[in-house]
């Protein structure tokens, strides 16, 4: 049996008295799209931040394509890496944030090319070409010179997705990418994510968009109090949840829609 593309094993993370991750394990195959659902504060975002070591877990391990994040390779696998080397690993993992986190003093183009030039060593011309391609893909050609504040929320989030893709990541993490958007702007971001999924990108998506989870995810993981209590194909988890917590959560969601 081939080892999974992404595997998180027994991750634990506490902040003071609060246990954000209470022994979370999750594995993903290459090209798989996993939607993580669950109530606010259940640890979903922490899981993403532990996977790219933005917030290193207290214990447990993360592997992407066989490489243990935060640690050396091969014989040096038990040695924790300094931040400098973790940074290199992190550059392989794209992340999209709830509040976009675009650089407000940069134009759209500058937002996209900054890291490829500084981290990947691309020339301005190479980075710009790559950036234009991606802007085209997210439907924003011609907005290279705009500043983030001049764009709608949906456009900003699409720029943020393009910015992450500009690093040519092997895995994309989405942290509630549509939660800060006006309802009428959600669709354009979901559409971009869907086309990304169709192109075979491996994606871990924390979301409250049940339609996205149902239609695009290959698997849904339900999070509760720092644990994944139920995981399976969307049809199973969303239509006939087994765990009482999942049932209660989905009922609340359905009522509010």
């Amino acid at each position: 049996m081939p080892s999974p593309f992404v595997s998180a094993s027994n991750l634990r993370k506490t902040y003071g008295d609060f246990t954000a991750l209470d022994g979370v394990s999750l594995s993903m195959d290459r090209g798989e799209v996993v939607a993580v659902i669950g109530a606010s504060g259940s640890g979903k975002s922490t899981l993403l931040r532990c996977i790219n070591y933005l917030d290193p877990p207290d214990s447990g391990e993360v592997r992407v394509d066989g490489v243990r994040i935060g640690y050396g390779e091969g014989a040096r696998e038990d040695r924790a890496l300094p931040e400098r080397d973790i940074r290199r690993q992190r550059a392989e993992i794209g992340m999209v944030f709830q509040h976009f986190n675009l650089f407000p003093h940069f134009t759209v183009l500058q937002n996209l090319i900054e890291a490829p030039m500084a981290v990947r060593g691309l020339s301005r011309a190479e980075a710009t070409e790559r950036a234009r391609d991606l802007l085209n893909r997210v439907g924003l050609s011609g907005r290279e010179g705009a500043f983030p504040a001049e764009l709608s929320g949906g456009q900003q989030q699409r720029v943020a997705i393009a910015r992450a893709l500009c690093m040519k990541p092997r895995l994309m993490l989405f942290d509630e990418p549509t939660s800060a958007l006006d309802p009428e702007l959600v669709g354009e971001v979901i559409a971009v994510m869907r086309s990304l999924a169709e192109e075979g990108m491996t994606m871990l998506v924390v979301t409250h968009e049940m339609d996205f989870a149902a239609q695009t995810a290959s698997r849904v993981a339900f999070f509760d109090a720092g644990k994944i209590v139920e995981t399976g194909p969307p049809a199973q988890v969303l239509r006939s949840p087994q765990h009482p917590r999942t049932q209660a959560f989905l009922q609340r969601i359905l009522r509010s829609h």
């Binding site: 933005l54 940074r87 290199r88 550059a91 794209g94 944030f97 986190n101 890291a115 981290v119």
Partner: peptide, 12 residues
């Protein structure tokens, strides 16, 4: 989030 975005992109 500005620093988080920088770190996520691998910027020193």
């Amino acid at each position: 989030g500005q620093l988080a975005a920088c770190r996520a992109l691998g910027l020193p």
